[in-house]
Design a protein around this nucleic acid. Structure first.
Lengths: 215, 215
DNA sequence: TGCTGTGAAACCGTTCACAGCT
DNA sequence: AGCTGTGAACGGTTTCACAGCA
C-alpha cells in the first residue's frame, strides 16, 4: 500500500510516541547510526516494535524489508510530518511562575518553537522581564498584538477564572492552537485546537496511588 | 454489590475524572447544593453521566436511587479515596524555572500538598530562594534530607541527562512516588510509582495538528 | 534470512440501556 | 417516577503472528 498523506484521526498516544521516536532518531543520527530495525528502536527507547511499525504505517511506508529504517531519512520525514520543520510562534498569556518558566524554557524556544510574547494583567508585572529577558506586556495589548503577529500557538498560564475568557479571545483572534495549563477544561473553540494540561491532576493521581498502596 | 475497597488497577483516565469530579463537588458544596444526580453533575462539569456512575462503582455504592448523590458526603468520601485527606510532602529536584514555579505554585502547596525541599546542583543557585522564599539547597544534601524527612513525592524538574540518576536516588531512598518533568521516560523503579509528564509532547502535538490542517 | 507492513485477535475503556431500589 | 448500579454492546488501541519483499 502506498503513502497516505492524510490519515483521518490519529490518537494523541500515537503523536506522543512519534515525538518520542523522533527524539530517539535525533540521538541515533547524531551518533552516526545509519539504519535501525523497529525492534532495535523499541528496545533502545522503550517502545513496542509492532507499534512503531503500525504508527508509521499510518503515514506510508518508511522502511526497507530485511534491513529496517534509514535513520537520517526517517528522521527527516518524521520531522516534516510532525510539523517540526518550520518554527511556530508562541504567545504566553499569564506571566506567573509557570508562564515565565515556559517563556524561558528551552522546550518552548529551541527546536521549532519561538516565544514571541508574554502577557499579564497584573500592573506590577507589566514592564518587567522574565529571567531571560522576555518582556511582560499588558494583556490589554493582546488583541492588537494577535492581530498584528498572528501567532501559531497560544499558551494559557493564567488563573482558572481568567482562562475561558482568554481562550475565546485567542480563538476569535484566529490563533489556531491553544495549550491551556489552567485548571479548567477549555472546550475546542471556533475551530481552534485546544489541549488542556492540568498539572494538578498528575499530582493528585500520585496522591491517589500512594493512598491505594497503604499510607 | 457492596463496597470494594481495593479495585485492582484503575486507569489514569478514571483518576483524572475523579479529581475533576471532586473539584466540581467542592464548588457545589460551597454553593450549598445538598444532592445532585449523575446527569446534572455530567452536564455541569462536562463529563458523562454513565461514566461518573461507573467510575464511582469501582469503589462501592455512593448514591441513593431516585435521588442522586449527597454532595457533602460524596465529596468527603472521594477526598479520602483519592488520598487528599492528608497532606503529602513534596521534594523538588531541579530549581530551574519550572522547579521554582512549582515550588511556589498554589497547586503544589494548598489542598493536600506541601513543598518541603527544593534542590539544585548549580552552585550559583544554592542558597538563593524562590520568589515565595523556598530556599534552594545543594543536591548533595539530598540523600541526607531524604533519609531524615522521608517525603511522599519527589518531583524531578532537572535536565534530561540528570533525571534518571535523580530518579534512582529518590527511589532507592524510599520515596514512593515520583513525578518526572524531564524529557526522558523514567521507568517504574524499585517499587516507586513514576509518572512522566513531558511538556514537549503536548507542544509538539499541537505543532502536528497545525501541520495536519495545512500551514 | 531478516525485517517490514498488516490482517486478525486480544484487550481495554466508553457508551448504552435497563433492572431494580427508594 | 426518578435515578443508581451494572451487564451487554460498541469502538478504539495494542499486541500477535505471519505473508511477502529485499
Amino acid at each position: 500500500m502506498s503513502a497516505k498523506e492524510r490519515p483521518g484521526q490519529v490518537s494523541e498516544a500515537t503523536t506522543h510516541r512519534l515525538s518520542l521516536l523522533l527524539r530517539g532518531l535525533r540521538v541515533l543520527d547524531a551518533a552516526g547510526t545509519a539504519t535501525i530495525s523497529s525492534s532495535a528502536l523499541a528496545e533502545r527507547f522503550d517502545l513496542n516494535a509492532a507499534q512503531i511499525r503500525k504508527d508509521l504505517a499510518l503515514y506510508g511506508e518508511f522502511g526497507v524489508r530485511g534491513l529496517g529504517y534509514r535513520v537520517r531519512e526517517l528522521k527527516a520525514r518524521l520531522t516534516s510530518l510532525m510539523g517540526l520543520d518550520r518554527s511556530r510562534t508562541v504567545v504566553i498569556v499569564g506571566a506567573g511562575n509557570l508562564g515565565q518558566a515556559l517563556a524561558d524554557s528551552r522546550n518552548f524556544n529551541g527546536e521549532g518553537f519561538r516565544v514571541v510574547g508574554l502577557y499579564d494583567a497584573d500592573g506590577r508585572k507589566i514592564g518587567a522581564r522574565s529571567r531571560t529577558g522576555v518582556p511582560i506586556r499588558d494583556v490589554r495589548e493582546l488583541p492588537a498584538a494577535l492581530a498584528a503577529s498572528r501567532p501559531d500557538i497560544g499558551v494559557i498560564t493564567a488563573p482558572a477564572d481568567a482562562a475561558p475568557g482568554l481562550a475565546s479571545q485567542l480563538a476569535s483572534a484566529g490563533v489556531p492552537a491553544i495549550l491551556n495549563f489552567a485548571p479548567v477544561r477549555v472546550p475546542p473553540l471556533l475551530g481552534s485546537v485546544v489541549k488542556n494540561v492540568d498539572l494538578t491532576l498528575f499530582l493528585e493521581n500520585l496522591a491517589y496511588q500512594l493512598a491505594r498502596r497503604g499510607a
